[in-house]
Design a protein around this nucleic acid. Structure first.
Lengths: 127, 127
DNA sequence: ATACCTACTTACAAAAATATCAGTACCCTG
DNA sequence: CAGGGTACTGATATTTTTGTAAGTAGGTAT
C-alpha cells in the first residue's frame, strides 16, 4: 500500500487529550464506515470471502476506483483482510477480519432501522 | 417549507417493485441519517428539546446553513419536530418526534462501536 | 438612532466525494 | 497474434456536499 490513508477530520480543529475537539464515536463511524459504498461492501463480505471480481459483480453500480479505494481504507482500519493467491490469472481475496466481524451489530441495526423506515415512509423516499 | 427534499438515490437507476434496484436499509440510512451533521444533531436532541440558537451553540463548528438544512431534512423525514413559539424575539424549538426516538439504537450502536474503535486504533485515526 | 437579538434565506465559493476512462502487466485461449 | 480475463493505478472530470458571507424582519436594549 503506497497510498497513505488520509484522516477525515479537519486539520484546523483544536486537539484535546489526543483527539480532536468534539471527536466522538459517531464521527469515527462516519469516518471509518461512512461513504457511499463501505457498508455495502462489508455487508457483502459478511457473506464470506470474496474475490475482487466477485465483489465487483455483486455491487455492479460501483466503479473500480471506488471499490478498490474503499477496500484499501477498510484494510487500513483492520476491518478487511486482503490475501493474494498466487495463480494465473492473479487472484485477490478479500474477507472480514475477526475485528471486522465486530461491525455486525452496526450493520444489523442500520439495516433494521432502514428497512423499517422504508416500509413506513416509502412515499417520502421514492417520491 | 418551500424547499423540496431531494432523494439521494440516482434517478437513472432502474426501479423494481416500487424501489430502486439494490436500494436497501443501509442506503436508506445513509440517505436519511448520513452526512456530516445529522447524527450529531440527533444526539443533541436526545438530550431534550433545543432551541435553534441552543443547537448552534451546542455544535459550534456547524454552519447555520448546514444546521438549518439538516434540521429541515430530518423534519421532512418525520424524525424531528419544529415548533414555533410566538414570542419576541422569535423562538423555534426542535425536538425528536416519537418516531425520531426510534433512532436511539442506531445511535447507541454507532457510538459504541466508534468509541471502541477509537480506543483500539487511535494511532491510526489520529496519525 | 444605532446596534443587536432571533431564525432563518440566498447566492456564491470551496472542498470533498465519486465517476470516467485509459492504461499496466501478466498469462491464457482461440 | 488478436482478444480477453485479473487486479489494479492514475489523470481528469463531474457531481455532491459543505462553507462563507451577506441580507431579512420585527422588536428590544442603549
Amino acid at each position: 500500500m503506497k497510498k497513505q490513508y488520509k484522516s477525515l477530520y479537519p486539520r484546523n480543529v483544536a486537539v484535546e487529550q489526543g483527539r480532536p475537539l468534539n471527536y466522538c464515536g459517531i464521527r469515527c463511524c462516519l469516518e471509518v464506515l461512512g461513504g457511499k459504498w463501505k457498508l455495502l461492501i462489508i455487508a457483502e463480505l459478511f457473506g464470506g470471502t470474496r474475490r475482487y471480481s466477485v465483489l465487483k459483480r455483486a455491487i455492479p453500480e460501483i466503479s473500480e476506483k471506488m471499490l478498490i479505494s474503499s477496500l484499501q481504507e477498510l484494510e487500513f482500519h483492520a476491518i478487511v483482510v486482503r490475501k493474494v493467491v498466487e495463480a494465473v490469472p492473479p487472484q485477490v481475496e478479500y474477507s472480514l477480519s475477526a475485528y471486522g466481524q465486530s461491525v455486525s451489530p452496526v450493520l444489523e441495526t442500520l439495516l433494521g432501522w432502514g428497512e423499517g423506515h422504508i416500509s413506513q415512509y416509502s412515499d417520502k423516499i421514492f417520491n
